[in-house]
Write a protein that binds this DNA or RNA. Structure first.
Lengths: 204, 204, 204, 204
DNA sequence: GATGAATGAGATTTCATTCAT
DNA sequence: TATGAATGAAATCTCATTCAT
């Protein structure tokens, strides 16, 4: 039974690409490295993908669309804005926890690669910012969020903080582990929403 | 009189490199593009710099050391932690304001280029995080900052937010202008220190 | 009833190859283009033909043998040499008229492709020259043709003129149409046999 | 003294390309074959020429422009049309005599390569036909040439005959040698202008 | 210091052909 | 017969770096 279908082979190549890109980076990765890692012939990569770029595009879009779906689902719920932002943070952190290589590739090779793939997928990346900004906007209208800071700006700061934390894990600059992952979720939301400063109430 | 000294030529090449890297990105920039833009012969680039990489390394280190100096100077002062962080934000934003191309190159090609120059200069970049973390730490010891969030983590979130805002400007995702620059300084500090949430006045 | 026999499929592939080669040229045509145009599976082309080359070889030989048969039939008749050459010209021009794609492929990809298929089929092409030369030889022996020019040379000039005219039609350099086709038959023979010069009436 | 200038190196590469293309044909010739034959490094070919195609384009245009110049010079003289056509034939035959490799490349790889370079240089090739046609037209106006055959058609037949003869030499189908070269000049003109048929005077 | 011609390693991509089903 | 996934050799072009003058 369990025959190897075309879709399987595609998947095998994609999985190999994740490992290779995570290990060597997109630029240093040769198509033959991917084929070797996948255990298939050189040309098969080109049978399933039009180019080396298309492999990364596919990897990114598949995963980023999952993220957008998750954000939209959170967005459609009727939780408080803070909880929505926590849910999003949680989804991103868990994505890294469960599949660090994929997230490494997406962040390092796409969202942070401003001059290459980052630029190409700017619109797609921007969609996430817009969805986050909308949540901030809701919070401001409801009065739970302060109104001075523009939602767009707040979304940038929020996402920038998360991405930097992931980057810290990716490059072993920040300790990484089950405890740290959970802690990070709370910390990000606590920092961006609550602020680093101690409540001034105590001063009174 | 005003003869062109060796140091001048070096500077001319470095300035050209900034323009070329900002315009085309490091990877798409050929050494000949730099020479052409500088109006010097191809080989002269190699007379002053050992390699193409060394040009970018030089560009980065020169500027990043200025940043580190600025942070250290701020650090050595005895302002409140919040004011220190504002001063750092201010320095970074003004750097972009006065020399957008240099900052674009440093951010896009080095600090965000995690797999290439970012990795190479990890230690140098880390120095900035450590200095920022120290300020947070001071704030926590003084009781003005809340203690739960680790200083290292806070530094990451703080720097991540700033970098994302700069990236937004660089890629025209965020409006850019004198007013926006000043506003951004306040917003970043306000967001990270004060938090997005409205003061819990209601609770009282 | 009307089942699709093996011979039919072969024919379908051959006809598709003619269209594809005429449209894209042999080199730019992929085997998959032929299969697609024929509406059959990729591998079936290899079921009926040993290679891509063999498809063109078959196309050429089938048609060129028809030409040789026609020339031989003309040759075997007892018409005057001029009429024989007219009949040959007529057959070639009508071949183009009725099946421009096939003739385009044969001329462009074989008889003019001196370095590839032209060389491979040199002997077969030469057969046509020899038959034509024989007709010229007959004319010379009969005294209707002048004797200085060697038959072999005359055959080259004769065929060269025809082929250039066909090439002119193929690439829209010469007007093409029913009238032009008929006219061309007369013109070729008139030019090569009668010459471009006006009869030396002045001599009288 | 006699230093090797840049122009020299270009020439050396071009000459090597002629030898290699003549020997192997354009398609089978690798750029490294040219570099090897020229005794220079691979990359130098790309220093002087943008692509492999550009090498052949250069080869063709240089020589074809010489041909056009020669035809124009002949055209501008006030010889009789027959003499002008003889002069053109003579120039082409001598070109082959003195530089058979160059002419082989130009004919085989460009003028007869209808689907690739022939199409690209169609306009340039057409210029020659037009100049020849103009000479025929003059002859017709002067009454020395018969008027029925269109000049454009006559030019095709004339050039087609010459090219086929050259092709015959190139592929050893026609005997080649000093005597044959001179003979061919006369034969081509005699065939196309005088016609193959014996003067009808005898008939009277 | 200054020049730019010369070098050559390296990687993507194409596509004819094979072959298991 | 028929399918189309799988194979892998081959060749162009790029460009950082070197070096003779």
């Amino acid at each position: 039974m369990a025959r190897t279908t075309a879709a399987d082979k595609r998947r095998i190549i994609l999985d190999a690409a994740v490992r290779v890109f995570a290990r060597q980076g997109f630029h240093s990765a040769r198509v033959s490295d991917i084929a070797d890692d996948a255990g298939v012939a050189y040309g098969l990569v080109y049978h399933y993908f039009g180019s080396k770029d298309e492999v990364l595009d596919t990897l990114f879009l598949d995963r980023w669309n999952l993220l957008l779906d998750a954000i939209r689902e959170v967005d459609d719920g009727d939780a408080a804005p803070r909880d929505k932002l926590f849910a999003i943070t949680s989804f991103i952190v868990d994505s890294y926890r469960h599949d660090p290589d994929v997230m490494k590739v997406i962040i390092v090779e796409v969202t942070r690669a401003a001059n290459s793939f980052g630029r190409k997928h700017l619109g797609k990346i921007q969609e996430a910012f817009d969805l986050i900004a909308a949540i901030v906007d809701d919070g401001q209208r409801a009065g739970t969020f302060r109104g001075e800071i523009t939602p767009q700006f707040a979304a940038m700061a929020f996402y920038g903080a998360i991405e930097q934390v992931l980057t810290g894990w990716i490059f072993d600059v920040l300790p990484r582990g089950e405890a740290e992952f959970e802690e990070a979720k709370a910390f990000v939301v606590e920092t961006i929403l609550g602020g680093l400063e101690a409540p001034a109430a105590t001063t009174i």
